[in-house]
Design a protein around this nucleic acid. Structure first.
Lengths: 110, 110
DNA sequence: TTTTGGTACTTTGCAATACAAAGTAGTAAA
DNA sequence: TTTACTACTTTGTATTGCAAAGTACCAAAA
């Protein structure tokens, strides 16, 4: 039970991960490992097993596309790129997120 | 596909519902239907089938207790009450929530 | 050449969760 | 006694994050 902290945070992360990914990719193309690093830097801990299926899901929804690129070291990298549809979705998510922040605040303050 | 909006919002709601319930109950005791109303008023749409199991879960975790009370009309009501443990958890969730808001902002702004 | 280590992407199985929908039951008015 | 309303409960389903194991490419060291 000492990990209640992490459970709470993990629980809250769910549902905003797709939003976070689109946020990151809206600024620059990136491959999975670098997305992981940026999420980690932003305080959103995620693991590979979560991120990869999520990227595939978003690609299948047409929110992302990707291209292969040589790596200076190691195997080639799959660079994900946000699509127009992805940018539209991101706008949706911006709105949804702001609404939720407002909702929580309203519920918390009374 | 026209309900993308609602999917996004529904997705984001997950993980913060328990937080919302504790927020509401931290101010006053309430029975399920009135909690539903308050969530709705706060912009967090939820349905019975979601709320009831959630209340039971939180009760089993010792975050809530309840007592029965006569209703002026209809069957008796189950009034839920937040416990000391629930208040401690609420503080945890406050912290987790604020961290997540900061994380998202950091990722969104770059 | 073979081995080793690092990087990167993928798959599988599981547990938790929100939700829709149907069900149970108490009370009171028609 | 039937109807309507309120309230709580249960069941089945699809989605999702995650841990863990797996596959594969590349380059430097042995």
């Amino acid at each position: 039970m000492e990990s209640t902290n992490e459970n709470v945070r993990s629980q809250m992360r769910k549902g905003v991960l797709e939003y976070c990914i689109l946020c990151i990719l809206s600024r620059t193309e990136a491959y999975a490992s670098s997305i992981l690093e940026q999420l980690k830097a932003g305080g959103m801990l995620v693991v590979e097993g979560t991120l990869y299926p999520l990227l595939i899901r978003q690609k299948n929804q047409g929110l992302l596309s990707y291209r292969w690129e040589e790596s200076p070291q190691g195997p080639p990298r799959k660079y994900y790129v946000i699509t127009d549809k992805g940018r539209a979705q991101l706008q949706e998510m911006d709105a949804a997120w702001q609404e939720m922040v407002a909702s929580i605040e309203s519920l918390r303050k009374g």
